[in-house]
């Protein structure tokens, strides 16, 4: 701009060109800054958690159970894995079945309805799911805070993710494979389970990993379903509350004690590291399955 106003010999045409070039530079700068802003936020979050969590992490976290607001997180680590595994166990059969139905029998009139409802289910606020399971399972069925109630809540949240990735996975199986199998006289179930499933398996697994990452990070649907417990799980599916890491983050950070804060930071580090590892693993899996000549 300075150059344009300083010299009166600049023709309108040159000024126009300069203005276009400046707009161009400004546009790219804004887009770069937007990206850097988001990247900085990501780094800030992981740095805040890693720095504070590393201080708090010691052997006791992995070997002791929580005592009030001190001790370790062994009970919560076990509970998180138990609830996530239980949720996946419940969500995988219907989720994968829905994915198969949408991909293989997409011409059915029910298919668009199912796809739409699955996609809407993704947007269901997780606390609403927790409230639903709380009233139905914890209160009305009388299960109390329990592993099963928590796992059901997580399963409802995982379902649409597994459905969507399974559908995509089965859609990517080349049609020739099905035609060839059918030409040899294979039935629907044989084509899908013996031919398509092995090919789609690694992509289905990506969806399962995504659901696992979400389950490990969820808090709201567990507060009123799994409850909280200072003790290790005793093997009962109902009438026995279970501890989990995200509860420790939420409940202990507002306590006034240093030991409570340490537990919250350690739990946050464990959850974040777990989610990070799963995200990277699922990306590598996806990249590997996209590589030609697989």
């Amino acid at each position: 701009m300075a150059a344009a106003s300083a010299s009166s010999f600049v023709s309108p045409r040159q000024r126009h060109r300069l203005r276009r070039r400046l707009t161009d530079g400004l546009g790219w700068t804004v887009s770069t800054v937007a990206f850097l802003l988001l990247g900085a936020a990501t780094v800030s979050i992981f740095w805040a958690i890693a720095a504070r969590g590393a201080h708090a992490l010691d052997l006791a976290i992995f070997t002791q159970v929580t005592q009030g607001t001190a001790g370790g997180l062994l009970n919560a680590i076990e509970g998180t894995l138990l609830l996530a595994a239980g949720g996946l166990l419940l969500a995988i059969p219907p989720g994968v079945a829905a994915g198969i139905f949408l991909a293989e029998f997409g011409a059915s009139r029910f298919a668009p309805v199912l796809r739409f409802m699955s996609d809407v289910l993704v947007g269901l606020p997780s606390i609403v799911v927790g409230y639903f399971v709380y009233i139905v399972a914890v209160v009305d069925l009388g299960w109390g805070f329990s592993a099963l109630a928590g796992a059901i809540a997580l399963a409802i949240i995982s379902l649409p993710y597994i459905t969507r990735t399974s559908e995509m996975a089965f859609r990517q199986v080349p049609a020739d494979m099905r035609d060839a199998a059918r030409a040899l006289g294979a039935t629907d179930s044989h084509v899908i389970l013996r031919i398509c499933l092995p090919i789609a398996a690694s992509n289905v697994l990506t969806g399962v990993l995504l659901a696992l990452a979400i389950s490990v990070g969820e808090t709201a649907p567990l507060l009123y379903t799994a409850g909280w417990s200072n003790y290790m799980w005793n093997g009962h599916l109902t009438h026995e509350p279970v501890g989990y890491l995200t509860y420790a983050i939420w409940a202990f950070i507002t306590e006034p004690f240093q030991s409570a804060h340490a537990l919250a930071y350690a739990a946050a580090l464990l959850v974040s590291a777990f989610v990070l590892v799963i995200s990277i693993a699922s990306r590598m899996l996806m990249a590997a399955s996209r590589r030609p000549g697989r």
Partner: peptide
Amino acid sequence: FFVELLAAIPSVVFGLWGYVV
């Protein structure tokens, strides 16, 4: 990945970051 990682961070960890930072 730097941006998409934001989607993977659990809500409660965002809460913790908001609370302490």
